[in-house]
Design a protein around this nucleic acid. Structure first.
Length: 121
DNA sequence: GTTGTGACATCGC
DNA sequence: CGCGATGCCACAA
């Protein structure tokens, strides 16, 4: 198959948003974690999912609803990934209000604030 | 139908 | 530990 079925993609997006909503306040999660929790969509190889799951999550985030705290989803570097640099300052303070601490490099310590799979449920 | 770009992850230096 | 380069899929123009 050349590319994933649109229906599966849609369902996958919903699943991603659902997981992000389960992320508790003061806790952040990486794209890889979200992809891992979302599970491998049908008809997709695990090795391919490992490489593209994160990107699919990012694509899903592109159209995330208002009630989805997309800001709690960060990349492996522990940094907020936004299209507009500096546009996330307001949301960053929002995370700080939840207890998330940023270092001098605008980075989050995933060892402390990184959410575990078992913490979601 | 083709081309360019992207809210990433991983490996190498 | 930090920065640069690479791979691959989906979407918009």
């Amino acid at each position: 198959m050349r590319y994933l079925n649109p229906a599966i993609r849609e369902q996958f997006n919903q699943q991603v948003w659902e997981i992000v909503r389960r992320v508790p306040a003061g806790c952040v999660i990486t794209y890889g974690q979200v992809a891992s929790l979302a599970g491998v969509p049908p008809g997709v190889g695990v090795e391919e999912y490992r490489a593209w799951g994160a990107r699919w999550v990012g694509s899903a985030m592109a159209a995330c609803p208002e009630d989805v705290p997309w800001q709690r989803v960060v990349n492996s570097q522990g940094k907020i990934s936004l299209r507009e640099p500096g546009g996330g300052e307001t949301q960053r303070q929002r995370l700080e209000a939840e207890g998330v601490v940023f270092d001098s490099n605008d980075r989050i310590d995933l060892k402390r604030f990184g959410c575990q799979a078992g913490d979601l449920r």
